[in-house]
Amino acid sequence: MDLLPTPEQEEIVTTVRSLLERDFNLNTLAERDGADSVVDRSLWAKCAELGWFGLGMDESLGGVGYTLAEEALLFTEIGAHATPGPFLATVLGARLAALSGAHDIAGAILSGESIVALAEPHTPGAASASPTVSGTFRVTDHGSADLILVMVGTSSALINASDMVAEPMASIDLLVPIAVGTVSDVSPIAGFEENPGLALRANILVAAELAGIATATAEQSTQYAKDREQFGTPIGAFQAVKHRCADMAVRAEAANSLVRYGSLAVLEGLTDANFHAHAARSLAATYAVTNSQINVQNHGGIGFTWEHTAHRYVTRSRVRSQTLGTVQSHLQSLLDQPTPS
């Protein structure tokens, strides 16, 4: 039993981190604020080349051959850098296509050629993904999408983007384009009536991204508390600030530990995998939102500016905490689980 990354996993994290820092710089990406797509095709192809989209997929399915644990580490870094883009829909879409035997489509997604948007019910209960796709959906990253991954509970489907009529809405996160789209009775290109495994992985990956937000905001506040001086001393010397930073570090440690545990529970097929996935998803969302909000406060005036990245984490945590369920829905699912073994 061990919950720290192995040296090989550390290496993956380091590689991911250096690319995100260099090529997904938030100040550069700000040029795309409010656009209906944030995907830079050449950059997307580079991520594909590095194997990010099939990191946790078997080589027999066209993936890299690592596991959900490494995939979760990737998503934690994506969260930590507030990296925009349809990473989740891409990873899940490629998996769905490959598992359902649509290898050409899986290949096109894995190579970065096909861009996948994510659709989930706009209002609960009023949409379906199987046997045909119908209803009103909230769609993220629809702008340049070729395909749309539709997820409704434990059923999922891939449809062509042209099968949806999407009406963009002003998104709280200017780097996560959101639209409301309608689909009527479209047969999926690939899909599953019932695939709880995909939904389970989705919960872990969203939780991992949120844990990354909780971690990055804790680190950003700690760094600022060391650098910023007032009353002739770094503000981190004051208990009011120091204790907020300590609490943020506690939340980050809790979220990361639980996400790692959850990813392994799913990976190893433990009977309490669902328990841990819902626990990780709800806890990481709560802690990401909390840390990102306190992070603005810790930065004072500069934290309130558009130029500073603090607001990116606030809005990203809000979007992701409502991606594939809410804190409330995951808490309810958690309470419905039997006592873990």
Binding site: A255, L258, H276
Partner: peptide, 8 residues
């Protein structure tokens, strides 16, 4: 659940 994971 988080506490147990943090302990590990």
């Amino acid at each position: 659940a988080a506490l147990r994971a943090m302990t590990i």
